[in-house]
Design a protein around this nucleic acid. Structure first.
Lengths: 337, 337
DNA sequence: ATGAAAGCGCTAACAA
DNA sequence: TTGTTAGCGCTTTCAT
């Protein structure tokens, strides 16, 4: 039918009943004669009536739209999280409004404003790297919009959280490197204002001390992408006291290190071991295949959305803070002994 | 301020003026005394007033929300497209409502329904693999909601399109393989109900015939992912009349082929050449690095969104069909001679 | 069993 | 320059 959407008003007029009758029929209200009810539903179906969600949201003062803010789209982990969020959102009947911060504070702030303006019923987000103050998130809380942080959480905002067990993942990876005989283990990480960086570094440091190894500050570098990793790793590998293992906060960085190591013709893993964090497709595509700490973005996304749905549905009844920790799994492939 | 959003009504009451005055002040209407205007804006700013976009959308009968439906999130190309869409959406002041079909017809249909119900002002989409009839898309058109298809386009719906120059990309890649001496070039592609498959096959076939090479049906396989590619490629490589080159519709498939080829200890690229399509991160991470047809998802996303914005803004004035073809670029790395 | 009317937040035509 | 009012689509209370 080449016509714009019809409204309950159109149906009412056509069937010579009142709009309230139509509304009741469409909502399957009990006190209504079967006759009119059938007639109305029939007409609605025939003319392809769809409720106007904007009007509904206006009337009910609540929507079924949740907001999501991620740092970026081209990113294996965040894509996976998004996929997980969509899995649950779809099942539970929520729509997703998507924003992206590009790790920029101002963009993140504006996204939050937009979300408040759009009257979404909840927000899922992973903080931008730049963000160091949190008034915008606080505003969500003030407006009684439930927020769940995942991965890059914000500890200063009372909210629920879904995190990867970064500490345990880093600890396990570092211990594995130690147990396979590595003596000088370098660590490449993101800026330390992020909780995940702190936690992964914590795991790394504790593994060292647990095994009686000293910490060499020279071996800890702020470097978290492929392109930067190449020169940094190259320089380290050419030094007299070179590392014999690298542990990086993500796969891209690990693969940059791998590239540099191959270029310098070190034997992998005999002379140099490398371990990443994420387990994206590239970890399998690389040669040798990358040993890495697998983190399931899907599980993070699903858990976060499940927590949010619960918070939206049972408002107030649930305990204030209920967090979720997603386990990692060390996936040993070919870049470690 | 720990309070819910205030409305123009609240402001009106507080300042003892009418709501229309507040509305005018906030919309910077010319016929209003500077005094009241300043007073109102000041109060609004102070109390953190934000327009209710739901109410606005209701009133104006138009929203600034566009809908996007992609087959899946965990996918380098579609993530890139999404990133491109967000670039432009953000700049032009649109919000994005995201759906995902998982290549399933029913999910796609429901997403479209939801989008219509949500009264979005436009839709960007890439069809599900399963989809073979198009009433749901037609409904968008009937409702005067502009639709732009990208990549997996729908030729049966009057709409604008943004496509990768699949034919030229496949032609160039195949010709390159031929020119570097490959004699038996296999082709791995997606099901042929998709235009992109047809076009890429077209390029492949035309390159062969252009160079006087015959087509061997045995060399053309429906296979478009990593896991399936491994056994299929293995079987082909073990046959008496094995191919000496593979051209795949995406990088994952190419990398599956690469894996199989390495396992069988064929020399790459001397004995077997491999070329993919996409140029994701894995193409660089692999060893040898993958030769592939680079397609810029970012450009596709940006162009699609630009087209959509134009269609939304200058409704009716633009020529009915205005399509955009995004060029590919053959990126020669190490899996070809 | 059904209708009339108010109201969600906002804009705009009309009045004053 | 400012106020009053109707109305966008829908639900819901109160009448009938």
């Amino acid at each position: 039918m080449p016509y714009p959407q019809i409204t309950i008003k159109d149906i009412a007029k056509a069937l010579n009943v009142s709009v309230s009758t139509v509304s009741r029929a469409l909502n399957n209200s009990p006190d209504l004669s079967e006759g009119t009810k059938r007639q109305i539903s029939e007409y609605a179906r025939l003319h392809n009536y769809k409720p106007n969600l904007v009007a509904l949201s206006m009337k009910k003062q609540e929507s079924n739209v949740i907001g999501v803010i991620v740092p970026q789209m081209i990113h294996h982990f965040f894509s996976s999280v998004l996929e997980g969020i969509m899995d649950v959102a779809e099942k539970e009947g929520f729509s997703v409004m998507l924003f992206r911060s590009l790790d920029n504070f101002e963009k993140e702030r504006r996204s939050v404003q937009q979300l408040i303006s759009s009257h979404v019923c909840g927000v899922l987000t992973s903080m931008a790297k730049e963000t160091t103050h949190y008034e915008h998130f606080q505003e969500l809380v003030d407006n009684h919009i439930p927020v769940i942080f995942f991965d890059r959480i914000c500890v200063d905002i009372p909210s629920n959280r879904v995190v990867i067990d970064d500490y345990a993942g880093a600890l396990a990876a570092t211990e594995y490197l130690i147990k396979t005989g590595c003596k000088r283990i370098a660590f490449f990480c993101s800026p330390l204002n992020l909780e995940i960086s702190k936690n992964r570094r914590g795991g790394y440091l504790d593994a060292l001390s647990k095994h009686g190894m000293s910490v060499d500050k020279e071996l800890i570098r702020i470097c978290d992408n492929y392109d930067e990793a190449i020169p940094v790793a190259t320089e380290m590998l050419q030094s007299d006291n070179r590392p014999d293992a690298f542990f990086a906060v993500n796969d891209e960085t690990a693969l940059g290190i791998l590239h540099a190591t191959k270029q310098l013709h070190f034997k992998i893993p005999e002379e140099v071991s490398i371990c990443g964090f994420t387990d994206g497709f590239a970890a399998i595509a690389s040669d040798p295949q990358l040993t890495t700490v697998g983190q399931s973005g899907l599980d993070v996304g699903r858990s976060a959305m499940e927590l949010l749905v619960e918070k939206i549905r049972y408002k107030g009844d649930t305990p204030l803070l209920k967090n979720k920790i997603i386990k990692t799994k060390l996936i040993v492939r070919e870049t470690t002994r």
